[in-house]
Amino acid sequence: MRLDLLTKLNEARAERRAAVLVTAMDGGAQRIVRAEALAGDALADPIDEALRSGKSGMVEHEGATYFLTVQVPPVRLIVIGAVHITQALAPIARLGGFDMTIVDPRTAFATPERFPDTPVIADWPETVLPPMKLDRYTAMACFTHDPKIDDPALEQALAADCFYIGALGSRKTHGKRIERLHAKHFTVEQTQRIHAPIGLDIGAVTPAEIAVSVLAEIILSLRKKPLRVEKAA
């Protein structure tokens, strides 16, 4: 591979843009196709399919074999609430390869001392999240169960179609939460996407156990359903 192609691939990743490296298995000729520049490409259909599934693989086209190296954006995890569960979640999310950011306007919680290795932003979700450009490769977990903090974050996650959206709180708390979201014109189909009570039911009790159940639920959402990227307009 030419260094300039490798550099382009790395740049696309840093910019959170999906791209595919096409390698001709006979001869080794290579090119990069970006998701937004797919129209008119001879391999548009298989590349589109590869982007949708997020899976690299071999394709045949007019008697030639190509390998498609699919690069979809690294999965982000945005956690609302710099609480005890979040402290347990931060190291295991990093181990799982998630790019985690914590948002909590309460400055007593959102301190670098509590989260030495994870970015913490001590500000309101409605201020912090828009420039972060939430997308389908983003997971959001809300742990404050304070509507002032969690609700605006959930609204943005639903609007951006994040692949995983979870919120801490009992069924009763969640019932009130979805009433508020419906009042803001979110549909039942949308609010059904929120995982609540949050986490797989493994009988988790401690903050660390809850963190494991939440990370497991995020991985389930990521791996069991193919990630989708929007078609170029």
Partner: peptide, 15 residues
Amino acid sequence: LSSDDDILGQAAVWR
């Protein structure tokens, strides 16, 4: 652990 980020990034750095 190394992610694809690290691997392809490191390959470019080495080159």
